[in-house]
Amino acid sequence: MTFLSLNHVTHQYFSKQGFTKAIEDVSLSIEEGQFVSFLGPSGCGKTTLLSIIAGLLTPTEGTVTIQRQPSSNTNIGYMLQQDYLFPWKTIQENVLLGPHIQGNITEMKKEKAIQILEEIGLASVVKSYPSQLSGGMRQRAALARTLMTDPKLLLLDEPFSALDYQTKLKLENLVSQMLKQYGKTSLLVTHDIGEAIAMSDTVYVLKARPGRIAKTFQVPDHLRTLTPFEARQHADFNDLFQTIWKELDQLESESIN
């Protein structure tokens, strides 16, 4: 059954100088429990697309539905490039931000927060402030915050791009495992080809100005079952990497000409 579907979504930004088309005629559908990636150069409207799916932005044309409902009615988790933990709140308060906003902090939710923080390896810093944590720990806390509200759909906007390489690889594994465990449908935006292949079931390659889907790649089954780190070591990983690399290269030269 189709979980998320985008129907001919187009979005323009207006300014005094005129308008720019951020994305044009994007249509796709994602099954429940799938992990898909959007891969593309800067300016391909990745963040715009996520904001539209999250219901934070109304597209100038087209519709987005999640389980046949408008997306603004659905509980969506959003992870950003940086953690955006609130520096004046403790890690626990940050993780409980969703329930706090929705006005339903209960003992059960508090226990759940502690449980998620334990699973994610942050049990010892529950009462700390974000400034006392490393970048990787902060991004993990942001993941815990996102999972707290039990979102049906998870939007990941380059969540690993600000981290060092080692932390990034570790976090890819953790996030992928947590999302599988909780059975989430997820949508990752990235400009890292390896990350897209290692984590996803489907990779959409976007072209820039205006952003539209150029090509779709299915990640082979035997790579999907591996953890992102193992997948990166697999021989077939490189083949797919090369194919996508060429595709992106070609798109780039087309856009220059």
């Binding site: 999250a54 934070l56 955006y84 609130f86 931000l97 906003i101 929705q102 509200t149």
Partner: peptide, 19 residues
């Protein structure tokens, strides 16, 4: 982006201001 985080949790304008 702090506002974005709050809005993704469905915060209203007053909550965005307060939080």
């Amino acid at each position: 982006n702090y506002v974005k985080v709050l809005r993704s949790f469905g915060a209203n304008r007053f909550q965005i201001f307060k939080e």
